[in-house]
Amino acid sequence: MPPVDEETVALRIPDPPPVDSDALSGSAGSSVAGHDGPAHGGRAARRKAAKRRHGRHGGAADTGATGATGATEEERRAPLSRVEARRQARARKPGPAVVASRAIGEVFITTGVLMLLFVTYQLWWTNVRAHAQAGSEASSLQNDWASGKRNPGTFEPGQGFAILHIPKLDVVVPIAEGTSNKGVLDRGMVGHYAEGALKTAMPGDKSGNFGLAGHRNTHGEPFRYINKLSPGDPIVVETQDEYYVYKMSSILPVTPPSNTSVLNPVPEGSGFTKPGRYITLTTCTPEFTSKYRMIVWGKMVEERPRSKGKPDALVS
Results as ranks from 00 to 15, higher is better:
R77I: 01
K308P: 00
K206E: 07
S31V: 11
R56V: 15
T282K: 00
E242Q: 12
T111W: 11
A201P: 01
G160W: 02
H131A: 13
Y225C: 04
K247D: 06
Y121P: 04
A23K: 09
S147M: 10
A134K: 03
H215S: 08
A60H: 14
P265S: 15
M1L: 06
K308V: 00
V237S: 04
Y278I: 04
K228I: 02
L198I: 00
T154F: 02
T289I: 10
V190M: 00
R129E: 14
Q122E: 04
S81E: 09
D205W: 07
V32W: 07
V184Q: 02
R86E: 04
N209P: 05
P3W: 12
M115A: 14
T63M: 11
A45C: 02
K182G: 09
Q142L: 14
M189P: 00
M1D: 09
E238S: 06
S147H: 06
G204H: 12
G188S: 10
S180D: 10
R43A: 14
T111A: 15
H57R: 14
L11H: 07
G29S: 11
G42L: 10
V119F: 06
P234T: 08
H35C: 12
R12K: 09
G232E: 08
S207L: 09
V262Q: 01
T72D: 06
Y246G: 05
G178C: 06
T126M: 11
G232C: 11
P305D: 04
E6R: 12
H215N: 08
G204L: 03
A138C: 04
G196N: 11
P311H: 03
K228G: 02
A146N: 09
D205A: 15
E74Q: 15
L117R: 13
E73H: 09
S316H: 08
F161T: 02
L24N: 05
T179F: 01
G58V: 11
F288M: 10
V254K: 13
G112E: 06
I104M: 12
A85P: 00
A132S: 12
G214P: 03
T72F: 06
W124C: 07
R187W: 02
L185C: 04
E74V: 15
T289W: 04
A201V: 07
A176I: 00
R187Y: 02
P157W: 07
R53L: 15
A39P: 15
V184P: 00
H215Y: 13
R304S: 02
Q142R: 15
L80K: 13
K149H: 14
F223R: 02
I13W: 06
K206S: 10
L80V: 12
S316R: 15
S180G: 09
A130R: 04
S258H: 01
L169K: 05
A28Q: 10
H192D: 05
T255H: 01
V245G: 01
V128L: 11
V296W: 01
N259S: 05
L114T: 12
G220K: 05
G95N: 12
G208R: 15
A313L: 01
K182F: 08
